[in-house]
């Protein structure tokens, strides 16, 4: 297993945002976490990247116990998070945002090559490389956020509701991109409320409700579950 979290609990004061969660992500997979607002999806990803300390539980990544590692150590180990709301640094240029994605890398030449390759892939970013990131559209900002994570050469990319606020056209481009990256070897942990799209690309799926996992399985299994479909997946 590339990522393995066991018995994870996240609390904010008296609120329990994630309760006794077990989740595993195998190398090469796309695993998706679904759930309504407030289900604890972002809290899970924040605990995995180290932005919040879990109240209890263990996190192993790539065979190493990272439960007590700082975010910076986790990024160095190969984790990357594309956060909810993209969190582009708007006072910096597009290129500076990408360079910050490689903050922990010291192979400057390789980073420069990879950034050039990204500009080929996303010509909109290439054209605006020296412009402030504030001037990008929502879709372009999401591409920049994903590009920023990719430049860090992660082994596992976590995305928090990347489709939020995007047009249907951009959403389908986004999921095509994720499948494509996955085919090229990137492992993905995807938090979504866009259930249909997420189930189309995922290999495995977890459904959260109020911090607890209510079910998990393959997309086929979940789609077959009529009750679940009606109650949570809004089909």
């Amino acid at each position: 297993m590339l990522l393995e979290a066991k018995g994870l609990n996240v609390r904010y004061g008296r609120i329990t945002a994630v309760k006794d969660l077990d989740i595993t992500v195998a190398e090469g997979q796309i695993v998706t976490v679904l759930g309504a607002n407030g289900a604890g999806k972002s809290s899970l990803l924040k605990a995995l990247i180290g932005l919040v300390k879990p109240a209890s539980g263990h996190i192993h990544f790539n065979g190493q116990d990272i439960t007590h590692c700082s975010p910076s150590e986790r990024v160095k180990a190969g984790l990357a998070l594309v956060p909810e709301g993209r969190r582009i640094l708007i006072s910096l240029t597009v290129e500076e945002n990408l360079l910050l994605g490689a903050y922990h890398r010291h192979d400057k030449a390789a980073v420069a090559r990879e950034i050039d390759a990204l500009y080929q892939r996303f010509p909109n970013l290439g054209e605006r490389r020296y412009a402030k990131a504030a001037c990008l559209s929502g879709g372009e900002q999401q591409m920049l956020a994903i590009g920023r994570a990719l430049v860090g050469a992660p082994r596992l990319m976590m995305l928090d509701e990347p489709s939020l606020g995007l047009s249907p056209l951009f959403i389908s481009r986004l999921f095509d991109l994720l499948s494509d990256l996955n085919r090229n070897g990137l492992t993905v942990l995807l938090v979504e409320q866009n259930t249909g799209m997420a189930l189309r690309v995922a290999h495995a799926c977890h459904v959260l409700e109020l911090g607890r996992e209510i079910t998990h399985g393959t997309p086929q299994q979940l789609k077959a579950d009529k009750k679940l479909q009606e109650a949570y997946l809004g089909a």
Binding site: L51, K76, L81, P83, R87, L92, G152
Partner: peptide, 18 residues
Amino acid sequence: RGIRALAENAETATLLGI
């Protein structure tokens, strides 16, 4: 760049490994 990222948003800077 890390300092400027921190100036704009400490949480984002942290999750980038700064």
